[in-house]
Computed example of a mutant assay.
Amino acid sequence: MSSHSLPISSLLALFFLVVLTRVPTILSVDDPRYSICRGTLTCGSVSNISYPFWGWNRPSYCGQTGFELRCENDITEIMMNENTLRVLDIDPERQILKVAREDYWNGYCPSKLINTSINYDHFNYGLNLRNLTLFYGCYSPITPTFSVFTNCTINSTLTDMSYATRNMLSDPRYSICRGIVVVPVYDAAAQDLEVNLMTMQAALRGGFELQWEADNDKCRRCRDSDGVCGFNETSNSFTCFCSDKPSETTCLPPTEGTF
């Protein structure tokens, strides 16, 4: 035996050392979707947003259809039908999304008159809201709830803009208006508008709240099992991404008392 040869015991020890150093590497291999969907969304003042929202650094399988967020010049936006809504705040615990009409953020004269509409498959309007109705190009008398506010140039056409903080859409006098746009605002903001016309921009920028519900209980159970909430785009259903593979429910077997 060469003087440079290692004894059998040393060779065995070296073998087990190599194996043991490789085991953690093998066990730590994650499902890439698990790793990717652990990342959160941050854009401007909106931060640390996860399921059911997705966008830019979170692929579509990290959230649900209808919850895509965009980041434009550090402004978080969400599209609902024809409306681009500026996201002012997201409260994951209460499932509340606070938004404002982007086309009314800097004025009252948008390039296109579009009524406010939301995706009722996922959202409902929050509480303490009132409809602010904006009338364009009407020939209506001034009343306590209907005030001529300003003139607008829309598509190169000069028109007056008036507003009401009460429901007046059933009044036939306003059926000949060139356009009518309804924008939800907080009830307190509408009350301010009834006594101070100059609070119009503040009312519009104050936005309104939307309530969402998206597999909240399933997602909670998934997170409690160290999983990451996601979406199976093939079956169009919730999925729980685990470190090794997806699950329909949780990453760990349910323990006694879990339901």
Rank of each mutant, 00 (worst) to 15 (best):
M1E: 04
S3Q: 09
P7R: 01
L14D: 06
F16C: 12
V18Y: 08
V18L: 11
V19F: 03
V19A: 12
V19L: 14
L20Y: 08
L20F: 14
D30K: 02
D31Q: 09
P32Q: 02
Y34F: 15
T42V: 06
G44Q: 07
V46Q: 14
S47K: 13
S47G: 07
P52Y: 05
R58F: 10
Q64D: 14
Q64Y: 04
R70T: 05
E77T: 00
E82K: 13
T84A: 10
L85V: 03
R94C: 10
R94L: 15
Q95P: 05
Y104W: 09
W105P: 07
W105M: 13
N106Q: 13
G107F: 06
G107W: 03
P110A: 08
S111Y: 09
K112P: 03
K112F: 02
K112D: 01
T116E: 02
T116K: 10
S117G: 09
H122T: 10
L132I: 07
F135I: 02
G137C: 01
C138K: 05
T143P: 10
T145P: 04
T145D: 13
T145K: 01
F146N: 02
S147A: 01
V148T: 06
V148A: 08
T150N: 05
N155M: 04
S156K: 07
T159C: 00
D160K: 05
M161V: 15
S162E: 08
A164L: 15
A164K: 00
R166Q: 02
R166S: 11
R166P: 00
M168E: 12
S175T: 08
I176G: 02
C177D: 07
G179S: 09
A189S: 15
D192H: 06
N196Y: 06
G206Y: 11
G207H: 07
E209Q: 14
L210C: 06
L210M: 15
E213K: 01
D215Y: 14
K218I: 00
C219H: 06
D224E: 15
C229L: 00
N232R: 15
S235T: 14
S235N: 13
F238H: 11
T239L: 15
D244C: 03
P246G: 01
S247K: 00
C251P: 04
C251H: 00
L252Y: 04
L252K: 12
E256H: 05
T258I: 04
